[in-house]
Every structure is written in structure tokens, then in C-alpha cells.
Amino acid sequence: SKDTIRINGIDIDVKDLHEEWKRLVEEALKRGDEELAIELLERALKE
């Protein structure tokens, strides 16, 4: 798994994120759902 995830052309540092969150965000991006990916990231970062 990578340490960054690219959303809207912005590389976001996710190395401190739990693997499960990372996977969910990557799944959302694979489906092209950037809005969901951002929402998941925000939730993950609050934890």
C-alpha cells in the first residue's frame, strides 16, 4: 500500500491511516467517487 493517495490531483499523506480506511478510500477512488473518498478521509483523520 502506498503512503499517499491522489484525490483531485492532490497527493494526501495517508501513511498514518489505518489500513482499513486506506482500502475504503482506494475503493471509492476506483469507482470514481472522489466525494466519498474525501468524506472517508476526513472521517479517518478524525479518529
Rank of each mutant, 00 (worst) to 15 (best):
E19W: 08
K2Q: 14
A37W: 02
E34S: 15
T4P: 05
V25T: 00
E47C: 09
I7E: 01
S1W: 05
R31F: 10
D33W: 05
E35P: 12
R43T: 07
D33V: 02
A37T: 02
N8M: 09
T4M: 11
T4C: 11
V14N: 02
G32S: 03
L41R: 01
I7W: 02
I12G: 01
E26I: 13
R6M: 09
K46R: 14
L29I: 10
G32K: 03
K15T: 14
R31P: 00
L24K: 06
D3P: 07
G32T: 00
D33M: 10
L29K: 01
K15G: 13
W21K: 14
D11K: 06
S1C: 12
E34D: 11
A44M: 11
N8S: 09
I38K: 15
H18G: 13
I38D: 02
E19K: 04
A44P: 00
K46A: 13
E20K: 12
I7Y: 01
D3N: 08
D3I: 10
I10Y: 10
R43F: 04
H18K: 15
L29P: 00
T4V: 14
E26V: 11
W21P: 10
R31W: 11
N8Q: 12
L24I: 06
H18A: 15
K15F: 07
D3K: 06
R23S: 13
I38R: 15
H18T: 15
G9W: 05
D3T: 09
K22W: 07
I10C: 10
E42G: 08
T4L: 13
A37M: 03
G9L: 04
E47H: 06
E34G: 09
E47A: 07
D11Y: 09
I10E: 11
E26N: 11
L24S: 03
T4K: 09
K46C: 06
E19M: 04
E39I: 14
K22D: 06
D3Q: 08
I5A: 03
K46H: 08
G9D: 07
D13A: 08
K30W: 08
E20A: 08
A37F: 03
S1H: 13
I10L: 13
D16S: 12
G9E: 05
K15L: 09
L17M: 07
L29H: 01
E42I: 08
L17N: 01
L24Y: 03
L41I: 14
S1I: 14
E34K: 13
E47L: 03
D16I: 09
I10P: 01
L40K: 00
R23I: 10
L40E: 01
K30F: 10
S1Q: 11
K15H: 12
L24F: 04
D3V: 11
L29T: 01
K46P: 03
L36T: 08
A44K: 02
V14Y: 10
K2Y: 12
T4E: 05
N8Y: 02
D16E: 10
D13H: 11
A37I: 05
E42H: 08
L40H: 02
E42R: 08
E34Q: 14
D11P: 06
G32N: 07
V14S: 05
L41F: 04
R23L: 07
R31V: 11
I10K: 15
A37E: 00
L17D: 01
V14E: 02
L45C: 08
E19L: 04
D11R: 04
D3R: 06
V14P: 04
E19S: 04
E19F: 08
I38C: 12
E39V: 14
K46T: 08
A28S: 02
E39N: 14
A28T: 02
E39L: 06
D13C: 11
I12A: 03
H18N: 14
L45D: 05
I7T: 02
E26C: 03
E20D: 15
T4A: 07
E26H: 10
I12S: 02
L29M: 08
G32Q: 04
I7A: 02
W21V: 15
E39Q: 11
W21F: 11
L40R: 02
E47F: 01
N8T: 05
D33Q: 09
D11F: 06
K15A: 11
I38T: 06
E20P: 08
A37H: 00
E27Y: 01
L41W: 04
A37C: 03
K22L: 15
L40D: 00
K30D: 09
K15E: 07
D13K: 07
R6N: 11
R31H: 12
L17T: 01
R31S: 08
V14K: 03
L36H: 09
I10G: 04
A28P: 00
L29V: 09
A44C: 05
K2V: 13
D16N: 14
L29S: 01
I5V: 13
E19T: 03
I7K: 02
L17A: 02
I38N: 07
L45K: 13
A28E: 00
L45A: 13
R23N: 13
E39W: 03
L40V: 05
K2E: 13
L36N: 05
D13R: 06
L17I: 14
T4D: 04
E47V: 06
R23P: 09
E47G: 07
D13S: 12
K30T: 10
E27V: 03
K2H: 12
G32L: 04
N8A: 12
E47R: 03
I7N: 01
D16L: 12
L41A: 04
R23Y: 12
K30A: 15
D11A: 09
N8W: 01
K46V: 08
R6W: 03
I7R: 02
R23E: 13
W21L: 15
E26D: 08
E26G: 05
L24A: 13
L29R: 02
V25F: 06
N8R: 15
I5Q: 03
E20H: 15
I10V: 12
L17P: 01
A44N: 03
G32I: 01
L40G: 00
L40C: 03
E26F: 11
A28L: 10
K2I: 14
R6K: 11
W21A: 15
R31L: 10
V25Y: 05
R43Y: 03
I38A: 11
V14R: 02
L29N: 01
R6Q: 09
V25C: 02
V25K: 00
L24R: 06
E27D: 12
E26Q: 09
L45R: 14
R31Y: 08
E35D: 13
I38W: 15
L45Q: 11
L36V: 06
E27I: 05
A28D: 00
R43L: 10
D3E: 11
V25G: 00
L45M: 11
L24V: 05
D11Q: 08
N8E: 04
G32P: 01
E26A: 09
E47W: 01
V14D: 02
K15M: 07
G9I: 03
